[in-house]
Amino acid sequence: MAPADAPAAFGDRQTLWNAAEDAEKRKDAVPARELLVSLPHELDFAQRRALVEAFVSEQLVARGMVADVAMHRPGKEGDERNFHAHIL
């Protein structure tokens, strides 16, 4: 997800992250931060997706940031309620 004035090429993950890394000149630079967001298991996928999109739009994109979002279902092992999203 990106602001309207972001380059269209940033819709491609490889292009986005190559550009982010190229923009950093220091060897100890941090080109991204990761947010790990737990999602309510009571919601269906569409509702969880809408929740994540609203959060990203309001908290990141509205502030001029580009966000790469990956939503995950619970794994075969562990808690079957572990719906979550990784946001870079």
Rank of each mutant, 00 (worst) to 15 (best):
A19K: 06
H86M: 04
E53L: 12
L35G: 02
A23C: 03
G75N: 09
F10Q: 10
L43Y: 13
D28A: 10
T15P: 01
A46H: 09
E21Y: 14
V30R: 13
A50P: 00
D5E: 15
S38T: 10
F10M: 09
D44E: 13
L16V: 03
H72S: 01
E80N: 12
E58N: 12
L51Q: 10
L35W: 14
A54M: 09
E77Q: 13
N18E: 15
A50W: 01
G11V: 08
A32P: 03
L36A: 11
P3Q: 11
R73M: 10
R49C: 01
E34G: 02
A46P: 00
P31I: 02
Q14C: 10
K27F: 14
R33D: 11
A29L: 07
R73K: 14
R26I: 03
A20R: 11
R81F: 06
G75L: 02
V66W: 02
A8Y: 06
R73E: 08
V56M: 04
A50Y: 06
A85E: 00
V61Q: 05
R81C: 07
D68E: 08
D22M: 12
L36M: 13
E53K: 10
R48H: 04
A8Q: 13
R63F: 11
A19R: 08
M71V: 03
H72Y: 12
V37M: 14
L51D: 00
L88R: 04
M71K: 07
V56R: 05
V37Y: 04
S57R: 15
G78F: 09
P40K: 00
P31A: 01
R26M: 06
E80I: 08
A85R: 03
A23H: 07
